[in-house]
Amino acid sequence: MFLNSQKALLKSDGTRLDDRLPSHVRPAFLKTGAVSVAAGSAYAEFGSTKVIVSVYGPRESKKAQAFSDIGRLNCDVKFTSFATPLRGKAGQDVSDKEFSVLLHKALEDAVDLHSFPKTTVDVFALVLQSGGGDLPAIITCASLALADAGIVMHDIVAAISLSCVGKDLLLDPTYKEESQQDGSVFIALMTSRREITQVTFTGEWSSTKASEALELCCDACVKLGEVMRVCLKEDAAEATEDT
């Protein structure tokens, strides 16, 4: 079966297939406290990408690990078997490990490891549905979950990706757009400090295009950070009302 690569991703009026402008991100639905048994958790929906993240800890590190006078962050990402249209375990194992490492790298610098010495904070993510932009969704959701768990952080991390198709830069691509992209940019940003914790580029980029893409992504992350803060404030207010 062949993917229909001839289909254009932009309509004649310049909007994308889901009626967005190229520089618009998908509407986000963010909610903390999705998993009651966890120290902190969050559920995020970006278009058709759905992710749940739970945070446990600070708790005892498993097995006998070398003594560490700063805390440890342990990240794990899993996909459900029906997250992708092709029910599969094979292709996903590689993504699982890679995403776990990238999630760790993106959050590591934002979390204040000195606030929980000798213990581990576990961040577990489960992708319920993969609709494009999975890794940015996971990272954003994980930041919310860490905040919900009360883990001390220097800043909130938001992440976004961008696809380059021909000359067009499409922010927050869907699965279809990602599978036909000529290049991509992925950024995780500390939203108040405006510092990049993780960045990758694939495909061919000239300097001007690269800096334009970076600019777009950073602005989008900062806006997303504001949305995240509003979500956290609202959920915290709700929680104090209930008790």
Partner: peptide
């Protein structure tokens, strides 16, 4: 039938 408990669901499950 496949029932799975991913690490998110419980503090007792480790990856």
């Amino acid at each position: 039938v496949d029932f799975q408990m991913p690490p998110i669901c419980s503090p007792h499950v480790r990856p």
